[in-house]
Amino acid sequence: MAWSLFNLLIFPGFLFLFVFGLAMEFVDRKLYARLQNRIGPPWFQPFADFVKLAAKEDIIPEEADSVMFRLMPAFALASVVTAFFYIPLWSTQSLFSFNGDLIVVIYLLTIPTLTFFLAGWHSTSLFSMIGATRTLTQLFAYEVPLFMAILAPALLAGTWSLSEMTVFYDQHPAYAAFNIIGLIVSLIALQGKLERVPFDIPEAETEIVGGTFTEYSGRFLAMFRIAIDIEAVVGASLIAAVFLPFGLGLGAAWGFVFYLVKVLAVIALLALLRTVLARLRIEQMVIFCWRIVAPAALFQLLINLILSGVLRP
């Protein structure tokens, strides 16, 4: 019981994710700045931002649904932290595991997006409602490719459990090379999930002020911010577990180093992506996702379907 609580709250649970999420936000912001030939923030900046926000007054609009307004940030945070427990990190074994946890993780990662929508919708401000509809529109565009891209490696491994999947790829590391299209697709989809350039359409500040979070302030906004930071880490961990299953059998210490390197690499790629591209319009985003990303994911699915027939008779 005490051990579970430790796992849940400290490591690899909430506290670890909190620190890790903020650290990764720093890496992202620093990298973004350095790529733009700027200096960027000091290492404690994300933490300072969090403390500052948490210390501010919470303002809830009179028109807004007060209960939903307060609940949504907690929901977003809870779901991303939960998802983390099912992902194998530095060994082939995750904290909790059952057959089908892959689907659960993907759904848990969808919940934050839904809470953004509900939060925006229940703020009842024009800008946040436009942001909310955009969030949902965008969700339909990137979610399907992401599902297909992540299910394809599972198909090859012949299991719906993330832990068993990593065991399979650990035994056959060369098979991971087949999933390269899926890796690219899921990186793009993760960028959409995190609502960052070029897919930061729901919170495009020059168009709709703060998007879904226009009316949010203080602790609730801080909670959303930390949920997004953790979501980035969880998403990166998921991609690392599914597509980059290397160095898992080397023991906890080396495994952890490998894990950090993998997450850093994913975060760096995402930062690079948002540096070199301009924000798309919502309809361009949807067209891009359905015309290019979804067929690519489908193609990956097809490859793995054939491969699983050939390699795993």
């Binding site: 990298l31 700045a33 350095r34 700027r38 540096t275």
Partner: peptide, 18 residues
């Protein structure tokens, strides 16, 4: 896409303009 890729990667190794 990513026309500025080379430029941003080189500026990563440059001294910041700030």
């Amino acid at each position: 896409p990513g026309k500025m890729l080379r430029e941003v990667l080189t500026s990563f190794f440059q001294k910041p303009a700030t």
